[in-house]
């Protein structure tokens, strides 16, 4: 079985957030439930200010702290699915410990205050056990892997678009959207990225393009000191995440 990995080249990324909206439509997340968010950083001052950005999906950690803390095994790493970390919505009890334990802030408890009003859950109310039922719902659904629209009281996260990736031909090195045979199996965020800043492939295959890129361009993993060992690698300048300073203090300096 492959070990699926993603590579994000920050030197090419334009910060456009197409990955974010592609993910949100493919996976019918709520507004603001951004499984794939792009983070932005401002620093410095006119005329030498800088702005950086960093797209952030779930890292599908090799050593996932979210899995270690989950008291129910609802969140689990599936070696038979390329090492993707899933949430089983039939088991999750909504204790949210995994959200505490994930260093990357990529887990969501959608049963929270609407982030934008009017609440879209009221606009497209659910007619079954799920939180809401938009008319454009993706027909793919697998609650054991957190695919579909979640019911109340469970945690959701990026699935590496397993409902697509699972169809990938056995042994393929890379899922490249430019290859017409496999484009339907490429994760939404990778498939749509206009400057082609994202790549998806098998980290266990030394021939894969993702491994080539990680090798050639010195791929790094985010917050590597946590030991979570992400299966998502970043290339280029800008993968360093600035330390936190409250914005007000920064500008008072």
């Amino acid at each position: 079985m492959a070990k699926w990995g993603m590579v994000i080249d920050l030197d090419k990324c334009t910060g456009c957030q197409a990955c974010t909206t592609a993910c949100s439509m493919e996976n019918n997340t709520l507004p603001g439930e951004t499984w794939q968010d792009v983070l932005y950083y401002n620093a410095g001052e006119y005329p030498s200010g800088q702005m950086k950005w960093l797209p952030r999906p779930c890292m599908q950690c090799e050593n996932p702290s979210c899995v270690h803390v989950c008291p129910t095994r609802a969140t689990y790493k599936d070696p038979d699915a390329g090492g993707i970390v899933f949430v089983d919505w039939n088991k999750c009890i909504g204790c949210k410990y995994c959200m505490i334990a994930c260093p990357y802030g990529v887990r969501f408890y959608a049963d929270e205050k609407p982030l934008i009003e009017p609440d879209i859950r009221d606009v497209f109310p659910s007619d079954n056990a799920q939180l809401w039922s938009p008319p454009y719902q993706n027909p793919e659904e697998d609650w054991r892997r957190g695919i579909g629209i979640q019911p109340k009281g469970v945690v959701s996260k990026c699935t590496f678009c397993y409902h697509k990736v699972k169809h990938a031909p056995e042994g393929i090195a890379d899922l490249d959207e430019d290859n017409p045979d496999v484009k339907e199996y490429v994760p939404a965020c990778v498939r749509t990225c206009a400057p082609k800043a994202r790549y998806f492939g098998d980290l266990d295959n030394p021939e894969s393009q993702v491994n080539q890129l990680i090798g050639d361009k010195h791929g790094v993993r985010l917050k590597d000191h946590t030991g979570n060992k992400p299966q998502v690698y970043y290339l280029g300048a800008g993968a360093g995440v600035p330390a936190f300073t409250p914005a007000d203090k920064e500008n008072n300096a």
Binding site: V67, H68, V69, C70, P71, T72, R73, A74, K91, C92, I93, G94, C95, K96, Y97, Y109, D111, K152, G153, V154, V155
Partner: peptide, 26 residues
């Protein structure tokens, strides 16, 4: 506070996640 309290009653004992401090705490 939990999302699914009754589910807890069966999933925790059924899954015995001994890595989790929350399991032991419970």
């Amino acid at each position: 506070e939990l999302g699914h309290v009754f589910r807890m009653l069966w999933v925790i004992p059924m899954n015995l996640q001994v890595q989790s401090a929350m399991f032991w705490m419970g």
